[in-house]
Design a protein around this nucleic acid. Structure first.
Lengths: 85, 85, 85, 85
DNA sequence: GTGGTCTAGACCACT
DNA sequence: GTGGTCTAGACCACC
């Protein structure tokens, strides 16, 4: 769940992977908020720039959507929902 | 740990061998950075071109990987890790 | 250019009318910024909510457009431009 | 060909539009370099951050491709070539 | 020389 | 509070 500051993988990609994992395992659920950019800065100890880059990756993958002034949310039908019928 | 300026072995191969040795004996560990090209230039007193050639050899052997904008790193499962279970 | 705190007209409408006047007489020109919400607060001594309400009126009239992260601007071809051909 | 620093459109989008126009009208031709990020900074008087954002837009549209250490280039079959058979 | 990554800070509208 | 935009600076590998 943590990132490797000294590893070869860019920080923003590591963070994106961590958040993507939480979305896929149901920690963050569809139509619910993911941590704000500021919270990402705190949790991973990175600048806002890096936090935004991480979320840009996830948005490009369609996993999250951002709403100016409101926040960032897990996309409605992202990947595999944690529970079926 | 030094190089032989007058021997038959090309400088860049001598340097590559030194670095490979440090990787194999655990001085440089998997997923951690090796010295930057600039640091190689300083340590061995060589040009940047020579430093690059040395790292090209190591990359071809799969010992290191380079990541644009982040640096050069020891490959994840390179050769023998310094400590077992 | 001032507002009437005791009159029947809501503050935000009075402010909207003042700004609309400045747009129409060319004080604020097309594609140029109008005062930020914070500046409206200062100039008229109102709360941010009131400033926002005033600008909401102008946006509804098509006189201004807002761009997240950049500011608020006079619409491209708003009403009567100050100078003809 | 210039940008409006005070207009509502974000700078990076204005720059992206200018470069896209030059690609479409043949000023910049397929498989040829577009201005480097540094040149964009100079020509439009913006920071490198803004220059990169502009090129990110064009890359997303498939108009350009970037090659680390080499430069940025017009994509091979971008849009309408300026001359037919 | 090139682009890729990262930091620390700012101001804006929006809720 | 939120995200969107922008600046000024840095270090890195790559050519």
């Amino acid at each position: 769940m943590s990132v490797d500051l000294e590893g070869p993988e860019p920080l923003y990609r590591q963070i994106a992977a961590v958040i993507a994992g939480r979305i896929k395992n149901g920690t963050y659920r569809p139509n619910r908020a993911v941590p704000s950019e500021a919270q990402i800065c705190e949790e991973f100890g990175v600048s806002r720039r890096t936090a935004r880059s991480a979320y840009a990756v996830l948005a490009e993958q369609g996993l999250i959507i951002t709403v100016p002034g409101r926040g960032t949310f897990v996309a409605p039908q992202s990947s595999e929902p944690p529970a079926g019928p």
